[in-house]
């Protein structure tokens, strides 16, 4: 059981450290890049605009609702993200893991049927979005290797997690943990970082729009 101990011990610690240290480093580099030009006298509030954009971009504007692809990406995107969020923070084994190893407290976990439903949404959304990367000429053209690796790793983390759902096998748990660690190590170097960069991006645009008295 040497491998399991490694996965649960030093490898786990190492991957979490890489995730945290390089993730923070990346945010730091983003925010200190180059220089910011002096801004014009504002018409409206840049801060208000930033807040508005951060929340406003959660849903597509009415002008784009006539387009099938906008619907597709929005629905599949939410199915995947909400499903994944529910699995990540409310699956019973995860709640227990976070309580025992990191936080020291817990919160109500999803019942089994809730887990299953969340997993269905997460898998369907991820599969649909990933498949589209291969068959939509637009996304096919702009997809980077990173986008496929990120999607693939996330898929494997989810799949191995679900395979270990019986909670009877140390091996299955170890496989899941191994993929989680690979995912954590890959995370800060990849587009998975959008988990943390989205408010920055929206906020900068919103601040510009707020300053100019428009909505972007």
């Amino acid at each position: 059981m040497g491998v399991i101990e490694l996965l649960e011990g030093s490898l786990w610690t190492l991957s979490v450290c890489i995730f945290v240290v390089f993730g923070l480093w990346r945010i730091f580099v983003i925010l200190t890049a180059g220089r910011s030009p002096t801004q014009a006298r504002p018409v409206g509030s840049p801060r208000g605009g930033a807040v508005r954009a951060i929340f406003g971009h959660f849903l597509p504007r009415r002008a784009f609702l006539g387009q099938g692809r906008v619907w597709f990406v929005t629905i599949a995107g939410y199915a995947f993200h909400i499903g994944l969020f529910a699995l990540l923070f409310f699956a019973a084994p995860h709640v227990a893991f976070l309580r025992d190893h990191i936080l020291g407290f817990d919160w109500p976990a999803l019942p089994r049927w809730g887990f299953i439903i969340a997993a269905q949404f997460a898998f369907t959304g991820l599969l649909a979005l990933w498949v589209r990367r291969f068959v939509d000429p637009v996304v096919r053209l702009i997809s980077r290797p990173d986008d496929h690796i990120a999607a693939g790793l996330t898929f494997l983390v989810m799949l191995t997690g679900c395979m270990a759902l019986g909670e009877q096998s140390v091996t299955l748990r170890g496989i899941h943990l191994g993929f989680v660690e690979a995912w954590l190590i890959y995370f800060p170097f990849s587009s998975l970082m959008h988990t943390f960069t989205w408010p920055l991006s929206r906020g900068f645009t919103g601040a510009l729009a707020g300053r100019r008295g428009t909505r972007m």
Binding site: I142, S143, R144, D147, S191, T197
Partner: peptide, 13 residues
């Protein structure tokens, strides 16, 4: 610009 380049997920919208 740095935030932008670090946020794109290539959704193609």
């Amino acid at each position: 610009a740095s935030s932008y380049l670090n946020a794109c997920v290539r959704c193609g919208l």
